[in-house]
């Protein structure tokens, strides 16, 4: 598995993938920097009791749609390498199991988004310092929750996009599914609890964010296993 992941990492070099992994969080933080910079007095007045909470809330409203569409774009870029060069046959002719190839793509994807989410956390801290918020009052726990919980709750969506991008040669379909997912996901808090697009919002009837996270991890693993089985029996061009 380590060999497969290493080869996946090698393949995405020079393909703008890392650039996007960095640009996502940097873009969100820069937009919030402009937002807070232009309306500093208004916003700091509005969040006077809880400056960090206000900042985190603002970051999350932009971070969620960015995460959802980022999932689709990165999955399509990683799978697109084989589609564009018609390399699926070649890749699968190597002495590696097909399910391991699928798991490798999925693992790479999760890793990329983990890096992206971590950068979001660092960026939020940095922006808070720049804005002169009290460094002693940083709610580390809440910050980590609001970055990593949605990431974990979105695991099923990651596996779905990886699976779609790998199975379909025409990347318009997985990307459009991703766009729909982003728009549906933005209004996701209104759905019933069972809809996976609601989970990254961490809202549920029980009022316990960890339930959403647990559902995400559970369904993510199930979808990964189904995807591995399906890919093992699939014809490739």
């Amino acid at each position: 598995m380590r060999g497969i992941l290493a080869s996946e990492l090698l393949k995405i070099r020079g393909k703008m993938v890392w650039f996007l992994v960095v640009l996502g969080p940097v873009g969100v933080i820069l937009l919030q920097a402009v937002n807070f910079g232009l309306r500093y007095d208004y916003l700091t007045d509005q969040y006077a009791d809880d400056l960090w909470g206000g900042l985190i809330g603002n970051v999350v409203t932009l971070a969620l749609p960015t995460l959802l569409i980022g999932i689709a774009i990165l999955a399509s870029m990683a799978a697109g390498i084989e589609h564009q060069t018609n390399a699926w046959k070649q890749l699968l002719a190597l002495p590696v199991s097909r399910s391991a190839v699928f798991a490798g793509k999925a693992l790479l994807h999760v890793l990329l988004l983990f890096v992206s989410c971590t950068l979001m956390l660092i960026g939020t801290l940095a922006l808070g310092f720049v804005l002169g918020f009290d460094a002693g009052a940083i709610p580390y726990g809440r910050l980590a929750e609001l970055v990593y919980y949605p990431f974990l709750a979105a695991l099923p969506l990651m596996v779905l996009q990886v699976w779609l991008s790998i199975t379909m040669a025409n990347q318009a379909v997985p990307l459009t599914v991703g766009i729909i997912g982003m728009i549906v996901g933005m209004f996701g808090s209104r759905f019933d609890d069972w809809v996976p697009y609601k989970w990254p919002h961490l809202i549920n009837a029980a009022g316990e964010p960890l339930y959403s996270v647990a559902c995400g991890i559970g369904l993510g693993v199930v979808l990964l296993l189904i995807g591995m089985l399906q890919f093992a029996g699939k014809d490739v061009k």
């Binding site: 393909k15 703008m16 996007l20 640009l23 873009g27 937009l31 937002n35 232009l38 409203t61 932009l62 749609p65 960015t66 569409i69 774009i73 990165l74 399509s76 870029m77 697109g80 564009q84 990347q171 318009a172 990307l175």
Partner: peptide, 24 residues
């Protein structure tokens, strides 16, 4: 660009700020 996702990424980069900018 021959990649399908790359032009779309450009599109997304410029479209996401809409969420904030329409308020201004």
């Amino acid at each position: 660009w021959s990649s399908f996702a790359a032009p779309l990424a450009v599109n997304v980069i410029f479209t996401i700020p809409n969420i904030l900018i329409i308020n201004s």
